[in-house]
Write a protein that binds this DNA or RNA. Sequence first.
DNA 1: GAATATAGTTAGCTGCGACTAACTTGTCAA
DNA 2: TTGACAAGTTAGTCGCAGCTAACTATATTC
Lengths: 161, 161
Amino acid sequence: MTAKNKPTQKLSASLEDYLEAIYNLQADGEQARSKDIAENLDVSRASVTGALRLLKQKQLVNYQPYDAVTLTNAGKDAAAEVARRHNVLKYFLIKILGVQPEAAQIAACKTEHTLGAETFAKLLAFTEFVREKQKQGQDLAGQFEKFCQKEKAKKNVDTKG
Amino acid sequence: MTAKNKPTQKLSASLEDYLEAIYNLQADGEQARSKDIAENLDVSRASVTGALRLLKQKQLVNYQPYDAVTLTNAGKDAAAEVARRHNVLKYFLIKILGVQPEAAQIAACKTEHTLGAETFAKLLAFTEFVREKQKQGQDLAGQFEKFCQKEKAKKNVDTKG
DNA sequence: GAATATAGTTAGCTGCGACTAACTTGTCAA
DNA sequence: TTGACAAGTTAGTCGCAGCTAACTATATTC
């Protein structure tokens, strides 16, 4: 039980993004260098330096100038939480709503910082619910996709006719 | 057909909020005074003045200092679109996911600016899909609620046992 | 080991969106 | 009609999150 009773200071969306990027780089077995983070988030290297200073202040990263960055335990917890929210969202958007993967990735990035804990919990539960239904032989995602196609066809008729 | 072929300049989340607040005040039959907008959004009156100047620049509001504010046609369209997104989200969160209304209101406010058009369309379609299922005799929202309760009960056992 | 390329930092700037404090305008009541 | 209070504006500040340009440190290569 590592992530419990954490004060878990509120982080800005932007700092959460930096944290997540470092987390992902490390998960890929790569060193998180300033340059990589910059490329990952499409920001300047200078912006990364600024963010690392803030994250160090908050004791979420181990950062010495000109040295490789690693996450502290608190940083790992915070980053894992962001990544978890990201994945919950992305799964829901792609697998249930049928949003295109690229669009879903972007939407998840932007939204992972804003939805509350309750909503994430419900979203997660809903995907489990759909999976459960699947096991029971009802393919809700598939039915929804068909429903969308029908609607689309209807619209085309409307516009043409 | 008023909202078609609009350049519909990209607005910041914050300006969209101002626009929506004015829209809602007017919809309630009230005059949108600076003070009301400030109270509505919980910001200072000075911030409202700043926002109104920007919105005027973009020709979305009719604004003269010391005078009541109204929306231009373009402003109405933009505000209606924001309100529509807000409602789509809120409906989905409350009626399908079963999120508490207050939490849903907050989540919708924060998220209405970030999700893309495709995602909103899918979300809307999904609520229609659920309604369709309802007509056909399958109450998905109700089934999901039961599912959540079962999960909750399970967790309680886990924690206690 | 010096020259150079790459990576990282610093300094200083911008725009946004909030704020406070102080001032101006509008309104209403005595 | 004037004085006081409410509403609105202005000026100036702050923090955040970017940026560029210029500098410094590290690594590589000859």
